[in-house]
């Protein structure tokens, strides 16, 4: 074995990755070569010295502060979408539903429905929005009287007719 080969094997020896035959060959070279023996000793010492670099101990407050962060983050995420989920649902259901937009299929489906509504004229597009607003203002009395009369069935149709009429004006 030459010194180059011994250098290559030195780190494997340190990690105890050599088989018995290789180990014997390597140690035989160290006995015969002063330079490699010193280099090996230095390598071994430097590896051991790494133990001196110890981190401080984490305080007990770590877990409390972590859980507080998690709860704050969760509350923040829910806050904006939470409002749109009907109050009739339980707190847990509302929390679960508030994440619907994270499901790609549901997000895509809602986008598709929205586009279809615009294309088919089922919903006022941006172009007609001001007219629709004025129409709804005109018809506000009618709508409120319709709702108070309990005409829920077909109410949507009446409402659309009023909005469309407003848009035509």
């Amino acid at each position: 074995m030459n010194c180059k080969k011994a250098k290559e094997m030195s780190t494997e020896y340190l990690s105890d990755d050599l088989n018995d035959a290789e180990k014997a060959e390597f140690l035989g070279h160290l006995k015969a070569c002063d330079y490699c023996d010193k280099e090996m000793s230095l390598l071994s010492k430097s590896w051991q010295t790494l133990s001196l670099y110890a981190p401080p101990e984490l305080g007990d407050e770590f877990v409390d502060s972590l859980m507080a962060k998690i709860r704050a983050g969760r509350a923040k995420k829910q806050s904006w979408i939470f409002r749109f989920i009907p109050l009739g649902f339980s707190q847990n259901t509302r929390a679960a539903l508030s994440g619907w937009w994270k499901v790609p299929a549901l997000t895509l489906a809602s986008c598709a429905i929205y586009l279809v509504c615009i294309e088919t004229g089922f919903m006022p597009s941006r172009q007609f929005a001001p007219a629709a607003i004025s129409a709804s203002q005109d018809g506000a009395g009618t709508i409120s009287s319709m709702l108070s009369d309990g005409q829920e069935t077909g109410g949507g149709g009446h409402l659309l007719t009023i909005i469309c009429e407003g848009a035509d004006k």
């Binding site: 250098k7 780190t11 494997e12 230095l42 390598l43 010492k45 430097s46 590896w47």
Partner: peptide
């Protein structure tokens, strides 16, 4: 990983040699 560690060990030996001699 073994190769990376080999180089790391040799580098550390070089850098710490002054303190260990």
């Amino acid at each position: 990983v073994k190769s990376i560690l080999h180089r790391a060990k040799l580098n550390l030996k070089e850098k710490l040699a002054v303190f260990l001699k």
